[in-house]
């Protein structure tokens, strides 16, 4: 079976500081995969390495195509949408312009317009605020905007970096529900990095456990959820 994403022997570093030491994992098309681990395990760096935001070596195969030397802009054009930590809002542009920017890599005007409506149907609050400057949105609204912006690419793969960060539990629930329906209805595959392990494991099909830049355990999300020793040792709940 063809993998959507295959990572083999991924190394990454910030200048002199090495963070990833030969990571291996893969993502099935249409699935939600989650990377779990403590602070500093290299989860965010893994996402950054996939889309070329840090120096990296090793194999990164997207649908069998090697992308480990591609620039960020080109990887995005291959259908990888990154929802970065800190949300990456274009603070001085309007909400609608933020969404238009998400579709920067596309040319089909009609498709973009219908996807804009789709995003507004998932996040009605964004429609209400479409002419506002995005810097004035609340944290939760900016998170929705970031997800919306990623959707505007009509991505094959979404990289989600701590979407629950700084959000009230209610809003987190809401956003995760939306992820679930996006995955089911729009067939978007996701690679999710999340501090809240129980939340992530509920959504995910597959999980990888990272420790100091290496995969120490992997398996079906359900299996990990039910394995008490792993939960105690690595996930702390």
């Amino acid at each position: 079976m063809n993998k959507l994403l295959e990572i083999k022997g991924l190394h990454a570093a910030y200048g002199q500081t090495r963070v990833l030491h030969g990571l291996d994992f893969e993502i099935e098309p249409g699935s939600v995969t989650t990377l779990l681990g403590a602070n500093g395990a290299g989860k965010t760096t893994t996402l950054r390495a996939i889309c070329g935001m840090v120096k990296r070596t090793g194999d990164i195969l997207l649908n069998g195509q090697q992308i480990n030397r591609n620039q960020t802009e080109d990887i995005v054009r291959l259908g990888v949408a990154h929802v970065p930590d800190g949300r990456g809002t274009f603070l001085r542009q309007t909400v609608e312009e933020n969404l238009q920017l998400g579709a920067m890599a596309r040319r089909d005007k009609a498709g973009i317009a219908s996807d804009m409506e789709l995003v507004y149907s998932y996040f009605p609050i964004l429609k209400k605020r479409r002419t506002q400057i995005a810097g004035l949105l609340s944290g939760g609204e900016q998170q929705m905007l970031a997800v919306g912006r990623a959707l505007m690419l009509r991505p094959k793969l979404m990289l989600l970096d701590e979407p629950s960060f700084g959000l009230a539990p209610m809003i987190t629930r809401e956003i995760f529900e939306i992820f679930r329906s996006l995955n089911r209805n729009e067939k978007v595959s996701m690679l999710l990095v999340e501090q809240n392990a129980s939340l992530a494991l509920e959504l995910a099909d597959h999980a990888y456990l990272l420790e100091t830049g290496r995969v120490v355990f992997s398996g079906r999300a359900e299996a990990i959820r039910e394995d008490e020793s792993i939960r105690r040792a690595y996930l702390g709940y």
Partner: peptide, 23 residues
């Protein structure tokens, strides 16, 4: 489009690259 891309590149260059703008 180019005008919007230029504004985005000036506003948030990291994020602009992540939506495919050649900053």
């Amino acid at each position: 489009r180019v005008g919007l891309a230029m504004r985005a590149a000036a506003d948030n260059p990291v994020s602009a690259r992540l939506v495919g703008v050649r900053v």
